[in-house]
Amino acid sequence: MAWQGVENLQVIVLSDLNLSMSHNSQTELVIEAGRTESQYWKDLWRYRELFYFLAWRDILVRYKQTAIGVAWALIRPFLTMIVFTFVFGKLAKLPSEGVPYPILVFAAMLPWQFFANALSECSNSLITNANLISKVYFPRIIVPASAVIVSFVDFLISGMILLALMIWYNFVPDWRILTLPLFISIAFAAAIGAGLWLAALTVEYRDFRYIVPFIVQLGLYISPVGFSSGIVPQQWRLLYSLNPMVGVIDGFRWAILSGRAQLYWPGFLLSLGLVTLVLASGIWYFRKMERTFADVV
């Protein structure tokens, strides 16, 4: 079963083979202080195969020696969704924007779980791969990036729950669902950006091992996962959007719930700007620290 994964990868790999074979024999590599800068993105392309393999390894290993395997990717968000629907929808009787409360919750649960998982996986990724980092060269950014990919696979799997919920409630989305990939890529950018920061910081300061679970736990309540961001008073909306996940989650709801959840544009743009900033600064910081990883980790 697991082996199937490799066979599928092969298709991608074979097509690149000619390319990588031809430049191998001719390249002259120069190693100098500060030199890696210019070759970095070229190297990233050259090492793409390792990137596939690392992601594939993490996916394979993730549910090894578990009795129910991939089902965990379904059960966890499903149970959280039930609890949130009960607490926020039934007990607190928060407004549901005219859609079934479980769908409202799950449309937010998807990007949030993705972000939260990616964040924790990312921040630990360099430490768990310390033996690789101190023994072999490759662009280090591959490690946290492949950790995000693994979370993305979980995201796709738990997406099936949303599909099932929509069928159950007979809920048909409109054209806005087509914009979903856009919001997914924003979620991706947010996850990678924050993940890179935390990964690089964890290498240097192990304190972040304890900080990250806390961020994730707190984030679940300060992001509009269990409730609609419509209940936040208007004058606080902009401030609320300083949490980049607010924009992402609102975007998801807007796309999935056929616009019944209004998108608060100033807030969304602010979130978007922040995501871009986090991503850019994340890459910058990671690149800056990367050179010393092998000596510090």
Partner: peptide
Amino acid sequence: LSRITEPTTGRICIKGRVASLLE
């Protein structure tokens, strides 16, 4: 030589593919 860490000064030119077996 295997590019795991950077030199402080100086340079190395390598032609071709390097594989290192550090462990």
